[in-house]
Design a protein around this nucleic acid. Structure first.
Lengths: 335, 335
DNA sequence: TTGTACGCGTTATCAT
DNA sequence: ATGATAACGCGTACAA
């Protein structure tokens, strides 16, 4: 079991450089390659990663940072789908994944990541508009890809969807059903997604000449936010666009709990199209945004950055799709 | 922004070795240390991880391998709790975590891990009795800690609970309630946990002189396994011990769905004491096994292995606790 | 306490 | 196509 290139070179009767070429696919004569490869496999040789990183400057390891309450990562399918997508794409290219969750403070986490060195690049979820962890990574010399967050500065690479456009689309759909008092349960204020979806909602309402006053309640992207539906209904809402599927599921519970029915009394729409959206009763109209795909794209974007280090930032906007289900069937309009 | 120890040494007016000592806590005169530290902070110097790994032989990175369907990691709180525990303990000691999930085959995953080199050690979930991935890691020279699996060979380090004892304990509890036909919904056959819990169940029944024939149905640790409760009840079961909380939750649904009530008609017990167990109606009697704690202990065990590399394997058996709730209240006995 | 000097195992640049 | 040889940046005996 040879442990170094030198030992292997001795065993194969060639120089260390040639063995290195065989391993990394350099120019080597065919029979030389065969001879070395044979020894390589016989001795189960594995090159030393540290030495290789030191000499080449590349480690084959990417960092993934999802700094949220640990609970959330597992309870909210949005984040787990994201992680699955990233993990999948990295594993496919045999790139290692170092993961940082919300176990320590953002400052400590940033410190640990930067002290780790060794990373070729990093993918970070960036949902808050201001986030010292994200700022720190962008300020470092580490190639960085953001998920879900467009920064004001135009120098960051990121993967996102057009939340304004998508929210406009679903709101417009509700309006076309004949609903006039379309309410909105927002996401957590301060996140880009929440603000942009509000903007899209208001844009669609304004274009249709409809008022939005009193038709918006603050939520936080969670099931509990659905309680806001009660307020909206008391203010006469005949349709509700929820900032995500989780809050829509909560809203559905409150609405039916009050003896009202969806979509007859209130049309309901969400955002995400997570797996459970289609299983609700009635199935939920929502915006599909391919969360897992976002994770995959983030990894690919990082690969791209690493390939041409000075190609400038890369921004990827993924498409969304309105998925119409029974929760916005046109019953009221027909009646 | 100094990039190497040499640059820093020049800036501080000392030798490179001294700077290294300041960073790693070696013996340095107090004023020298102060002077160097000042430069260290001013230049935001970060030592090169690869060089340091190459020279010292330690990387400060641990691998965590949870090779299961990606779905399961997030849907089953058992695994997410485990991961949280591990991540927490590693982050606390500023040790990096490389994660491998079930994105590729076990063979490919093993290959990627071993080729990665660079890991100081690895923690792997080992639930199947035979698992090429686990075998491969144990056969490698990588310090390895198993979670949830005692191997026949006595050379592996692991963290586990005594499943036989715990299953005996909960079964005995049901018997003491006056139940005579105690049924069992097993876990997935082939896993150590399932087999050991069966053994514990049978041991308790035998000791009480009770028959188990026809009182056992095969499950798979999931909610769907709860359907087996119907069979058991038809065969006269007046109590059911489910191999975990998930299957117990499923069983509860089937039992009440048939118009029967827990615990009056059938006493019900689970295993794990995951968060939702206390929220069921009625709250579920179960075995608490501190899953998150298992993750923490696994990390600590790895640290121990790394501290004295030739101290031999370390085995940790964590305690379990019977948590009695309303699903096994003594109604029938009292009546 | 501090400095010198060697070794860690590769990659990559030169010659040949 | 192949072989020397110089980096790569740090830890650590050993010497002073």
């Amino acid at each position: 079991m040879a442990r170094t290139l030198d030992e292997l070179a001795a065993l194969s009767g060639v120089s260390r450089a040639t063995v290195s070429r065989v391993i990394n696919g350099g120019p080597v004569a065919e029979d030389t390659r065969r001879r070395v490869t044979e020894v390589l496999e016989r001795t189960k040789f594995r090159p030393n990663a540290a030495a290789r990183t030191l000499a080449s400057g590349r480690s084959g390891v990417a960092g993934v940072v999802m700094h949220l309450e640990p609970r959330l990562l597992f309870e909210d399918p949005y984040f787990s789908s994201l992680l699955q997508g990233v993990a999948d794409a990295l594993a496919e290219h045999a790139v290692g994944m170092m993961l940082w969750l919300g176990n320590r403070s953002k400052e400590e986490t940033l410190d640990q990541i930067l002290w780790m060195g060794l990373l070729d690049g990093v993918i970070v979820t960036a949902h808050q508009q201001d986030d010292p962890l994200v700022d720190g990574l962008l300020a470092s010399d580490l190639p960085t890809v953001l998920i879900g967050h467009r920064r004001a500065d135009r120098t960051a690479s990121y993967v996102d969807v057009d939340n304004v456009e998508a929210a406009d689309m679903v709101t417009t759909h509700l309006i076309r059903l004949g609903r006039r008092r379309v309410g909105h349960i927002t996401g957590r204020r301060g996140t880009v997604a929440a603000e942009d979806r509000i903007a899209g909602y208001e844009r669609a309402m304004a274009r249709a000449g409809l008022a939005t006053e009193g038709l918006s309640v603050e939520g936080a992207f969670d099931r509990a936010s659905g309680a806001g539906a009660v307020d909206l209904i008391e203010r006469g809402a005949d349709a509700i666009f929820c900032a995500n599927d989780a809050s829509a599921a909560g809203a559905l519970e409150w609405i039916t709990g009050r003896g009202l029915s969806v979509p007859e009394d209130v049309a309901l729409a969400g955002f995400d199209d997570l797996a459970f959206a289609a299983e609700l009763d009635p199935p939920l109209t929502t915006v599909r945004q391919g969360v897992q795909q976002q994770g995959v794209e983030a990894a690919h974007t990082l690969f791209h950055l690493l390939r041409d280090p000075n190609a400038g930032p890369k921004r990827v906007i993924l498409p969304t799709e309105l998925v119409i289900r029974r929760s916005t069937a046109g019953a009221k309009q027909a009646a």
